[in-house]
Amino acid sequence: MPYIKDKRPETMLLEGEWNVGAYKYKAPHLLEEFVQGLKEKKLIGSMCIGCGKVIIPPRNICGRCHQRMEGRITVSNWGTVVCFVTSPPVEKGKFQVFGIDPVESGLIQEGSVLIPTFVRFDGADANIVTELCNVDPKDVFIGMRVKAIWAEEPQGQLSDLVGVEPI
């Protein structure tokens, strides 16, 4: 094929931007129900009347049956590790979340190992992603039994579910 340039002189560089801060996204009402449940240390999922699947956090449409998920079900606080990932020890200046360095701002301790985990709480058909705490990373395995850790005083917000720990 004939058209590969051998020489590669650079072209002029122009600055531009895609302003993405101005979007107005809509929140679903279901999230309200979910966080109200968290306030009472309950995990509320939605159940599809068609196929019986329980999805947590609740979603309002079952794509398999193509209908609204009308049922509400509280699932257990106990569950199973379905999958997990271990991070290398967290270092300062390695990554940022919305422009904030989580180590510098004290959110995460330097040198700690994060274990985001897919947990399937008993009674649910969907996994929730949360952090696995109070465990040596070497001891984690798929199929490990865990239970939810709750905030001391749940406020009715997503961070009320702090994570899970081994039973």
Binding site: A27, L31, E32, F34, V35, S87, V97, F98, I100, P102, L107, I108, L114, P116, T130, E131, Q155, G156, Q157, L158, S159, D160, G163
Partner: peptide, 10 residues
């Protein structure tokens, strides 16, 4: 709804 920045960071 109070998603904690820590879990996002994780």
């Amino acid at each position: 709804y109070g998603l904690s920045l820590k879990s996002l960071a994780a």
